[in-house]
């Protein structure tokens, strides 16, 4: 009993077919081959599977396909860079050394992306709160916060 849903994924209209009980994370990774979204814990704790759904950051491991509606907009790490240029967040993550092993990086960037879309001038404390749902075991977070802060200071449109 698979189900068709017309989604907008990374700006493109896609008809997606999947079982309604399938996790959105698996639909993205397996059906759509968008493997930039990672699985760390499978229970909404680590944030590695974070994506942006209709403007809000969510954990794709605890959403099932059936919960989606026609017209829902999904943005993943694969959908934020320009054709030739990295997204400013990606660029600052690179330059600040905010990515070590990199497994939390896509989710972390998506959480920051959702924040900056809503609030282009967050304080350091607001940045910390916005990515508190994304666990990183490598960096000690400091360089991640710094990368997001630099993005804020650079005044680019997200």
């Amino acid at each position: 009993m698979e189900k068709n849903i017309a989604l907008i994924i990374n700006g493109k209209k896609r008809k997606v077919k999947a079982h309604p009980a399938e996790r959105l994370l698996d639909v993205l990774r397996e059906n759509l081959k968008l493997t930039g979204t990672k699985e760390g814990c499978g229970e909404g704790e680590c944030g590695a599977c974070s994506i942006v759904l209709n403007g809000e950051v969510v954990n794709s491991c605890i959403i099932i396909f059936g919960q989606l509606d026609n017209g829902d907009e999904i943005t993943t790490i694969e959908g934020i860079a320009g054709k030739k240029k990295l997204h400013p967040l990606q660029q600052h993550f690179l330059e600040c050394g905010a990515s070590q092993c990199g497994i939390c990086t896509p989710g972390m960037i998506m959480a920051a992306y959702a924040l900056l879309k809503k609030n282009p001038k967050p304080t350091r404390e607001e940045i910390k709160e916005a990515v508190a749902g994304n666990l990183c075991r490598c960096t000690g977070y400091t360089k991640i916060i710094e990368a997001i802060e630099k993005c804020v200071i650079s005044n680019v449109k997200i």
């Binding site: 909404g44 944030g47 974070s50 809000e56 950051v57 954990n59 959480a111 709160e129 916005a130 749902g133």
Partner: peptide
């Protein structure tokens, strides 16, 4: 409640 991701859902 959880973090932002959980609060959003």
């Amino acid at each position: 409640v959880g973090a932002i991701q959980i609060q959003n859902r």
